[in-house]
Amino acid sequence: MTIQTLIDAGIFSLKVTGDPSKNISKVFCCDLLSIAMSKAPAEGAWVTVMGNKNTLAVASLTDISCIILAEGIQLLPDDLACAEREGITVFTTDLPIFDAALKIQELFA
């Protein structure tokens, strides 16, 4: 599945488009950055409530495909601009982490 699949599913709101043709390998949930740093799968869809510039840095260093900010968490305008520059796809949702991750998982079926 690609990011475009996730966009078309319309379950989350798209904040930064990035590169929709990127592949999504699996779903990954974690809010502690140094754990995410070592465990985040390449091309993963990362569901987290940690929305700041450091999240973007970890996403970019680990080659995460997209970030889904759960629980209504939003990025500051400055950080959104940073995600644009880095080409990282960012979605937001009011859903809790588990429910958001489950929705993505269901798209793999």
């Binding site: 502690l32 140094s34 740093m37 070592s38 940690m50 700041n52």
Partner: peptide
Amino acid sequence: LGFGAGMGLPN
């Protein structure tokens, strides 16, 4: 901000 897991040096 998401730091402080105490995993940096082990990583």
